[in-house]
Design a protein around this nucleic acid. Structure first.
Lengths: 152, 152
DNA sequence: GGCCATTACTTGCATTGACAATAATATACC
DNA sequence: GGTATATTATTGTCAATGCAAGTAATGGCC
């Protein structure tokens, strides 16, 4: 199908930023999920984001994880619940504040680091293959600027 | 929170492409959904993509819509089903091929065009505000290249 | 000390999404 | 013509998401 084929009051669909962002984001996400699954690890990209944060620092609260990953509280609640059921982490009631649940990795959760980090790195390398470093810097700066431009 | 704070075997999280893609895509999507909702139209961004294709050409089959929007068949089946229940479109059995259901807009579906296109255009304008045209071209070409680099 | 707003988390509901499996129909090939 | 294969669409399952509403605990303020 030829690109630039659909025009709607000036919105050329196949050139629309949202269209391409969705396209690339979705495919990147699916690739990552499949790559993990192929290695026998049923870890979603969203769980991966949580793992990365916890490898760096354990004992984060759910709301800290929400902020760091830009998910709302209900979503984070369910993600960590799923990860707990899978044995990747455990939640402990904070002794200082009974409302808070702090999150700690299990042995399994820690072990995934060695296994999955190279896979993720390989995916990124493949995604950016052949793209000049200069263009990637521009790409990133445009993303950051777009993010600032959007709703707070 | 300072950026570049989390490093995992060389993956600097807050610089990671996937992280930023997700960030921007998610926020763009949510902004669009809210902008439509504020104007009283309960249209999701995914339904919006379908509308755009149908405004351009009616009578597309579900599988054509799947291809055009990069959704798989079950997802498209449910999206158009939801839109049909909302009265935005109707599905008709193809006379040539009994397996196929072709999709046509209702009056309501057509009417949304005038109402929502300016909203979408406003969102894009806000998102790219202050970004040089040159950088946007680079941005788009990087997205396209990344898409090619990923799984077919 | 006691009310009240705030915060942390959970649950409910609806949509999107991927994958697997199924039903119905069409096409290819012998 | 008849069987095998492919295509179109649907349903089921599970996870992620946003919003709204609810629960529990904290903290401020009088």
């Amino acid at each position: 199908m030829k690109l630039d084929q659909f025009e709607n009051d000036g919105i050329v669909v196949d050139k629309a930023l949202g269209f391409w962002l969705n396209r690339v984001y979705q495919r990147l996400r699916t690739d990552m999920y499949r790559a993990f699954a192929e290695r026998g690890e049923d870890v979603t990209p969203e769980q991966w984001m949580v793992l990365i944060r916890l490898w760096e620092r354990e004992g984060l609260t759910q709301s800290e994880l929400s902020d760091l990953t830009l998910r709302d509280a209900p979503t984070m609640s369910r993600i960590v619940q799923g990860m707990e059921e899978r044995g990747l982490l455990e939640r402990r009631k904070s002794p200082e504040d009974a409302r808070v649940r702090t999150v700690f990795l299990t042995k399994t959760g820690h072990a995934l680091r060695k296994k999955l980090v190279p896979v993720a790195r390989m995916l990124v390398e493949r995604a950016v293959r052949g793209i000049p470093e200069r263009d990637l810097r521009t790409f990133r700066s445009v993303l950051e600027r777009m993010f600032e431009n959007l709703e707070p």
